[in-house]
Nucleic acid binder design. Structure first.
Length: 448
RNA sequence: GGCCCCUUCGUCUAGUGGUUUAGGACAUCGCCCUUUCACGGCGGCAACACGGGUUCGAAUCCCGUAGGGGUCACCA
């Protein structure tokens, strides 16, 4: 059974890169009739917060990236992690290191200069030192190579000499991420670890624990990071890295997911792939290896495109949920929505139109010059007498314009401004038609 | 600096040795449509990082160089 997991640490908000990782994990699991699990990596008690956990939970829910099972909290698994550390210690695959942080600092400076990895002098020191704090470190193999067959990166090998004896258990007996994550993945029977490229180097070190424990080695897929416009790893300074911000700004969930997917994964030449209603045969090997830049302009235009492609009912439902729509408005909105949608980038733009769509619309006071006043009078006459259909209205207006030796461009903008208070709306005839005779006369009369 | 990865229009990408005058999308520019704003339509600008090989033939394979990124914690 294919099992993937998304394992965020609640030390920050749910950011765009995390969402993409979650999405890939989700898609891959679903494509293979597998399970998508969620594990909260909250072992860093100082930086983790419940608030962030809730943001992650709510965010995934909102994005419809819903785990197959209840989420697991890494902090609840601590005992298992510690047990493994001691088991490794007992079997000679790990050792107690008594280096102080000052000593360690010195070692680091030196090793950095030499381009070597820190070797703790306690690695082979078997004498038991009492009454002193220690950490447990993993005994990395000193020679040979470690090979990872990564589903995205391909086969990559690294000399074991560059692998450091990473800390498994801290001085306070708490497990590090390096240990905890491996143990949890084993216990959760994760078959495929799909995570950010920034973890790639960790894989070579973590796999040693797996080998020492004789556990099955999972498939790895390290996906490239998303970069900001400047080409560097996406971070706070690039503005909204919190997904909630994009959603608040009006990006639709489906668009966000679509864009994130297509950033490094292409489906033919489709700009929008309907993830909701289609099953995608998601293949890890189709993921591009190079990082890509997040382009707010593109995702914005995708949003506009998406609105135009959506069934009207879907959009209408969303509007109804977010705004107060009475029957008056609803009738008009339903009629004009297709035209309106061609003008929107975000659904929330409807708010401006809801104003004049309402019979409560007070309008604005316009000081019209004589020419324009005459036009309004002319229009009033037509509206009072015309048969109320789009065709008849247009016919009568055309007749009036011909008689007055005028063009539509003389009349249209004037009517639009008076009737709607806006300078851009759908076809003015449609506006007039759906507002209705009384409403139009009411609004026009106000300015004469 | 060590190690690892990457490199097609400004950006996201298609392309897996000949079907390619390198295709699409966003952005940008121009034109058309036009009652406004849009939509839409048509068109322009614009890329295989560089240098060597391999081959009858290379964006596609190999090797260098350059550039970019990631990572080097008792953070995750």
């Amino acid at each position: 059974m294919i099992k993937t997991r998304f394992a965020p640490s609640p030390t920050g908000k749910l950011h765009i890169g995390g969402v993409r990782t979650a999405l890939f994990n989700y898609l891959f699991a679903k494509s293979n009739n597998g399970k998508f699990l969620l594990r909260i990596e909250d072992t860093d008690t100082k930086r983790s917060s419940n608030e962030n956990i809730n943001v992650i939970l709510k965010g995934l829910n909102l994005l419809k990236l819903i785990p197959s099972e209840k989420e697991i909290y890494q902090s609840n698994e601590t005992k298992k992690h510690v047990d493994i550390a001691y088991k490794l210690l007992k079997n000679g695959y790990a050792y107690k290191c008594y280096l102080s942080s000052e000593e360690l600092k010195e070692f680091r400076n030196e090793s950095r200069k030499k381009g070597e990895v820190i070797k703790s002098p306690y690695r082979d020191n078997l004498s038991n030192i009492k009454n002193k704090d220690f950490v447990i470190r993993l005994k990395m193999p000193l020679d040979g190579q470690t090979i990872i067959k990564d589903e995205v990166q391909g086969q990559v090998s690294v000399n074991n000499s560059i692998l450091d004896d990473m800390v498994l258990l801290r001085k306070d007996n708490s497990p590090t991420y390096m240990l905890a994550s491996v143990v949890d993945d084993f216990n959760m029977e994760i078959s495929h670890i799909i995570r950010g490229d920034d973890h790639f180097n960790n894989a070579f070190r973590q796999v040693q624990i797996i080998k020492y424990m004789n556990w099955p080695i999972p498939f790895y897929a390290h996906i490239p990071l998303i970069h900001g416009q400047d080409g560097a790893k996406l971070s706070k300074r690039h503005g909204a890295e919190n997904v909630m911000d994009y959603l608040k700004d009006g990006i639709e969930v489906e668009v966000l997911k679509n864009y994130l997917l297509r950033l490094g994964y292409s489906i033919n030449n489709d700009e929008i792939y309907d993830l909701e209603n289609n099953t995608l045969d998601f293949k890890l090997e189709k993921i591009n290896k190079s990082p890509s830049r997040f382009d707010i302009k593109k995702i914005t235009s995708l949003n506009a495109l998406y609105l135009r492609k959506q069934p009207l009912d879907t959009i209408l439902e969303k509007i109804k949920i977010e705004f107060n729509i009475n029957n008056d408005i609803l009738k008009r909105l339903e009629f004009l929505l297709p035209d309106l949608l061609q003008r929107y980038t975000f659904i929330k733009e409807v708010e401006n139109d809801l104003l004049w769509l309402s019979s409560d619309f007070k309008g604005h006071f316009f000081q019209l010059n004589q020419d324009n006043l005459n036009l309004v009078f002319g229009a009033l006459n037509i509206l009072k007498s015309s048969k109320w259909s789009l065709i008849e209205l247009k016919k009568n207006v055309d007749k009036f314009l011909a008689q007055s030796n005028l063009k539509m461009k003389d009349l249209g903008p004037v009517l639009r401004t008076v009737l709607t208070g806006k300078i851009n709306t759908p076809d003015i005839f449609k506006v007039i038609f759906i507002l209705g005779r009384n409403e139009c006369i009411k609004r026009l009369t106000k300015v004469v």
